[in-house]
Design a protein around this nucleic acid. Structure first.
Length: 518
RNA sequence: AGGGGCGUAGCUCAGUGGUAGAGCAGCGGCCUUUUAAGCCGAAGGUCGUGGGUUCGAUCCCCACCGCCCCUACCA
């Protein structure tokens, strides 16, 4: 076991031995505390020096040493815990010879506990006069620099614990993430939903279009796929009588990595029997406003250069969005009727691409797609998606790109499906669930016939059989928790809201590989 | 995968074709109300890795590794 900086590592190990020689346990088992640093600041932050003197309250607090100013026979330091710091004052004539020897052997980063009482210094800072010092754990490696903190992005991701110690903002983001998930649970629990867990390893990966990760089960001697969506299992549960279910957990998609994509990401999926997609739209408006309010304190949320208004959501059909965001420079915008006509979307895409390619604008890459609905989806993505900054419900998706959604009764080329776009990101996807087993089988077969890496290779016969047992009319939706967290914490990269985002494993260059005995 | 940028002390960063500096942290010394503590002293680097050009490379060129951004794939 040997890590850089070697010299400091060895010095600190020696200090640990000296601490042990003083009679302190090097790795004690517990510390009984009365308050966290945060609790002290909250409880006594307003009390005057006189009030504190009169009460002479004894407190016991544990934390990490994050600043240290030693002056001969006394010293000040800050203990960090619960995201806050509290100053301590250690005097030799109070803690005694042994206690002060310990204090002198401490390094920034060490974990200690103190017993003492509160007072205010000359500069009026709330401080603990330490009567007794407890050694709790040694930091053998130095903390990042105290003033600039840790800014190296790579180290912030790889060694997130350092980021969390050094950067309070980072800690706040993950606290907010936890609150978001808690609020989501509360929201759905209150509405009679039951939380479930469905398999992460699927024999047939379904419920979305994505390339899966492959793994293997030894005893069964079968390949399994890390799930790309829980959808098909959750719908089996609505068949089983769980009329309102949700699951919050990871999905895995073997795709690229970007500021908006991590190979494993967290989704909330929920299903509500006897409702349709319009009901979900209303539920979403309520949910997003409530979340914004409870996490940020307002329905107006700063995100980068934008101020997002979660109090209202614009609603647009996909065709309306194409008409609305059609670039003026590309000539006359198509009409919705043209987009609805057979062959229309393809002709319109070709017209648009002609202009886009001549003018260096993004164009709709066809990659072998042929159906009208696919052209429509491409057109939307090309010209409208990243312009949907304010929360927008985009609805009425083409059937061609919505294999699990129920068709609109008046227009079978469209489905009762919507997605929510905020800051140009897709954050939710919901629809009236297709529960006609024959139609579902047709759509699956069509997918398989079309082929492609993102499409299941085999028909999920059990799912079709489940539908044959009768699924109630149901509306279901998935919400991307990582992206939602980005929006509510003003984070520009998904890696800033995932504690340990996937990075390429670092090549071991130092001797740390010899740490096998740890 | 393609394009652009970055990689110098443990951390945050300067810098130059003649083998490197600052602040903080660390080490030694002084200091019992300091707070980015101060003062004095000493130490710390195969300048991401490997080639090449050159009398000489941390700097110029090439390749590789890692990270970031954009594009592509995708939610």
């Amino acid at each position: 076991m040997q890590f850089e900086p070697r010299e400091q590592f060895e010095q600190r190990q020696k200090k640990l031995e000296q601490i042990e020689a003083l009679g302190y346990e090097p790795f004690p088992r517990e510390f009984r505390w009365t308050d966290t640093p945060l609790a002290l600041v909250e409880k006594y932050g307003e009390k005057s020096a006189g009030e504190l003197e009169a009460e002479k309250l004894e407190v016991r607090v544990a934390g990490r040493l994050v600043s240290l100013r030693l002056m001969g026979k006394a010293g000040f330091a800050h203990l960090q815990g619960s995201g806050k710091r509290i100053q301590i004052h250690v005097k030799k004539d109070v803690v005694g010879e042994r206690g002060f020897s310990l204090f002198q052997l401490l390094d920034l980063g060490d974990l200690i506990g103190v017993r003492g009482h509160l007072f205010r210094t000359k500069t009026n800072e709330l401080t603990i006069r330490v009567d007794e010092l407890s050694f709790l754990s040694k930091s053998l490696l130095p903390l990042p620099e105290k003033w600039h903190g840790l800014t190296d992005v790579e180290m912030r991701y790889r060694q997130r614990y350092l980021d969390l110690i050094a950067n309070d903002h980072s800690r706040q983001v993950f606290v907010a993430r936890a609150q978001i998930i808690k609020e989501l649970r509360r929201f759905f629990d209150e509405r009679g939903y039951i939380e479930v867990e469905t398999p992460m390893m699927h024999p047939i990966p379904g419920g979305a279009a994505a390339r899966p990760f492959i793994t293997h089960h030894n005893t069964l001697e079968i390949d399994l796929y890390l799930r790309i969506a829980p959808e098909l299992y959750l719908k089996r549960l609505t068949i089983g009588g769980f009329d309102r279910v949700y699951e919050i957990n990871r999905n895995f998609r073997n795709e690229g990595i970007s500021t908006q994509h991590n190979p494993e990401f967290t989704m909330l999926e929920f299903y509500e029997a006897y409702s349709n997609y319009r009901d979900l739209m209303e539920l979403n408006e309520e949910l997003f406003a409530l979340l914004a309010m409870s996490i940020t304190g307002s329905t107006l949320v700063k995100y980068g250069e934008h101020e997002l208004d979660f109090a209202k959501m614009q609603r647009l059909t996909m065709r309306e969005a194409i008409v609305k965001y059609w670039p003026r420079e590309a000539g006359q915008a198509p009409t919705e009727a043209e987009l609805a006509a057979p062959g229309g979307p393809r002709a319109i895409t070709e017209r648009y691409n002609g202009w886009a390619k001549a003018n260096g604008a993004p164009y709709a890459a066809s990659k072998g797609t042929v159906k009208d609905g696919e052209w429509t989806g491409l057109l939307f993505e090309t010209m409208a998606e990243d312009r949907l900054i304010q929360p927008t419900i985009l609805y009425d998706f083409p059937t061609d790109i919505s294999p699990l959604s129920k068709q609109k009764p008046e227009d079978p080329t469209l489905t009762e499906r919507f997605e929510i776009y905020i800051a140009g990101m897709e954050v939710a996807n919901g629809f009236s669930e297709l529960n006609d087993p024959a139609e579902q089988e047709r759509r699956f077969q069509a997918q398989i016939a079309q082929g492609g890496e993102e499409v299941p290779k085999a028909l999920d016969v059990d799912y079709i059989r489940a539908l044959c047992h009768g699924m109630p009319p149901t509306a279901g939706e998935g919400i991307g928790i990582d992206r939602l967290t980005m929006l509510l914490t003003d984070s520009q990269s998904i890696r800033d809201v995932i504690l340990f985002p996937l990075l390429r494993p670092e090549a071991r260059q130092d001797s740390a590989s010899g740490a096998g005995g740890a």
